[in-house]
Simulated scan of single mutants.
Amino acid sequence: MVLLNDKLKTTSILNVSYINTNFTYFLQIIQARINQRENTFIATVNPEIAYYAHQNPKYQSILSSADFVTPDGIGIIKASEMIGQPIQERITGFDIFKALLEWGSQNNKSAYFAGAKPDVINDLKVVLKSQYPGIKISGIRDGYFKSDQEVASEIKDQQPDMVFLALGSPKQEAFIAKYRHLNNGLWIGLGGSFDVLSGNVKRAPQFWINHHLEWLYRLIKEPSRLPRIMIIPKYLKLVRKSK
């Protein structure tokens, strides 16, 4: 049985505390909190985001305000091993997103979606209708809105069970930190997850994911990602120095 006050083990790396548990148990905790309308902020952090947080104290403070920070990247797992506090499992934003949509569809939960490009949102609407028909869409819009306050007001009015933001970091986490008090539901930043679920970006085949090579697959498909990928060794170097 999962209790709302269950204390998850965490592992701190460069002043960011990551949950140290398995995906199944974490999902049960999230679902219990959603059912109880417990205000919840989840930050999904990969090495690129962690490196940025290390350079930007204000953003690191935002991550510290999250209820849960998940290790979204094999680089975070490697870093935990380097400091002798291995994290059990990589928990990605995309996997959380899909699992919550499936569960939400089965349990008639409501969700608000904001982020990505207009074409992506149009495709996402089709996917949601066909694959997750039980989800009540409280609102859905692309990420090119001019007024954060307008989006926040919609969320406040609709009071969805889940708020999914694909605005990219650090914008999505800053938005959540500023407006989460307006809705006692789940708030989570998902980066490029709308692009993947809508079919506009192909996720790595399971073989690459199982062998922790998803980053390499994406680099092959998108060579322009190289500067972002190169942050991983910089991040691991920082972790090594911090030991």
Rank of each mutant, 00 (worst) to 15 (best):
L63Q: 12
A66R: 12
F68S: 10
F68I: 12
F68H: 02
T70M: 14
T70H: 10
P71V: 02
P71A: 11
D72I: 06
G73H: 04
S80N: 10
S80I: 08
E81H: 02
I83F: 15
I87F: 06
Q88W: 14
E89P: 14
E89L: 15
E89M: 03
I96V: 05
I96Y: 03
A99G: 07
L100G: 02
L101P: 03
L101C: 14
E102F: 01
W103K: 01
G104W: 00
N108A: 10
N108P: 00
S110A: 05
A111L: 00
Y112K: 03
A114S: 07
G115L: 01
K117D: 00
K117L: 10
P118E: 01
D119P: 15
I121F: 03
L124C: 08
K125Q: 02
V126N: 12
V126L: 04
V126Y: 09
V126F: 05
V127D: 10
V127R: 06
V127K: 09
L128M: 08
K129F: 04
Q131H: 13
Y132G: 13
Y132H: 11
P133S: 13
S138M: 03
G139P: 15
I140Y: 12
R141Y: 14
G143D: 09
F145T: 15
D148F: 09
E150N: 08
E150V: 09
V151E: 07
A152Y: 11
E154P: 02
I155W: 05
D157S: 05
D157I: 10
Q159L: 09
V163K: 03
F164I: 01
